[in-house]
């Protein structure tokens, strides 16, 4: 397709690579690095019209340039595990919280869902619905209440009910709002103080339609709170989500899950090989 009308002309060829990469949202800088590598290759050495050949080459370069980060998101059944879900507005945090609860439930880990998004109207109800769908317990909270104290209650409740997993859904916030980032930091402090023995995973949710701002999101969240891993949502659309590759490359944050639909089962573990394959489709 893309390469079928290729091209002895190296310039035109490179432009096609550029277009493919830019359109995947991998970003102009990573793209430039890859183009540079292509520049140094004598194209005459290759059978230029062979689509698969170049795709393989590009894939190889992406793998070299962006080694997959080690995903540490594992559940330890011997202790309390806490997943703190955070991200900017509208990336699909609440939906993912429900999906994650369902996913772990099917693996035999029961969880408690905690609505620490007391700000967005309807967010608590939304998570409540999802908890029913996932078949897990839900902690009630009042709209407008202090998210940190909701989380505190969640920890107590999870301990009392001997849950393996506590999933905390937080309000969407743009990383540029310092007060909102501080609120998240407070939640994290409450967790560290009241569950110092728990295994905490701070998951940043980024949606696949996100452009270059994703790098700023990740770097700001990382700086102010620490990010254990990334979940990439909304892969059921036409967006490729290439920004997570650049985030891995620049910030060394692993991607652990991807989500791709409205059903509670629409998620799975991230696989970089498959991801890059799809990216280049």
């Amino acid at each position: 397709m893309l390469f079928s009308d290729a091209i002895n002309d190296k310039g035109v060829f490179l432009e096609k690579i550029e277009e493919l990469l830019i359109l995947s949202d991998i970003g102009p800088n990573t793209t430039a690095e890859i183009l540079e590598r292509f520049q140094s290759i004598n194209l005459h050495l290759f059978r230029v019209n062979d689509f698969n050949h170049f795709k393989e080459l590009l894939k190889q370069m992406l793998h070299e340039l962006i080694p997959p980060q080690v995903d540490t998101s594992k559940i330890d059944p011997g202790m309390l595990n806490i997943v703190l879900i955070m991200g900017v507005n509208g990336t699909g945090k609440t939906s993912f919280a429900g999906k994650l609860a369902y996913y772990y439930k099917s693996k035999g880990y029961d969880s408690l869902l905690v609505p620490a998004d007391t700000f967005r109207a309807g967010a608590i109800e939304q998570l409540h619905y999802l908890s029913k769908e996932a078949g897990v317990e839900f902690l009630r909270a009042a709209p407008g209440s202090d998210p940190a104290s909701v989380v505190f209650d969640g920890i107590q409740s999870a301990r009392a009910k001997k849950k393996v997993l506590l999933i905390v859904d937080t309000a969407g916030r743009l990383h540029t709002y310092h007060n909102l980032m501080r609120e998240l930091a407070k939640i994290k402090r409450v967790i560290l103080k009241n569950a110092p023995d728990a295994l905490l995973c701070s998951t940043l949710v980024i949606d696949a339609t996100t452009g270059q701002n994703g790098l700023f999101q990740a770097s700001n969240f990382k700086e102010s709170l620490g990010v254990s891993d990334i979940t990439l949502t909304k892969l059921d659309g036409t967006a490729k989500g290439g920004i997570v590759l650049t985030i891995q490359k620049e910030l060394s944050i692993p991607v652990s899950f991807i989500a791709f639909g409205e059903k509670i089962t629409d998620m799975c573990r991230y696989n970089q090989d498959k991801f890059i394959e799809t990216l280049l489709d």
Binding site: I22, L23, S24, D25, V88, N89, G90, L174, H175, T176, A208, T209, T210, G211, Q212, N213, G214, Q217, G237, T238, A239, K240, I243
Partner: peptide, 29 residues
């Protein structure tokens, strides 16, 4: 906050449904 896909999405909606204009959100970041 959208990336490259914004154009395709907007174009698709416009072609399929007809769009009279846009509201651009999250510009406070």
């Amino acid at each position: 906050l959208m990336g490259q896909d914004a154009l395709r999405m907007a174009d698709d909606f416009n072609k399929k449904i007809g769009v009279d204009g846009f509201i651009l959100t999250k510009l406070d970041g």
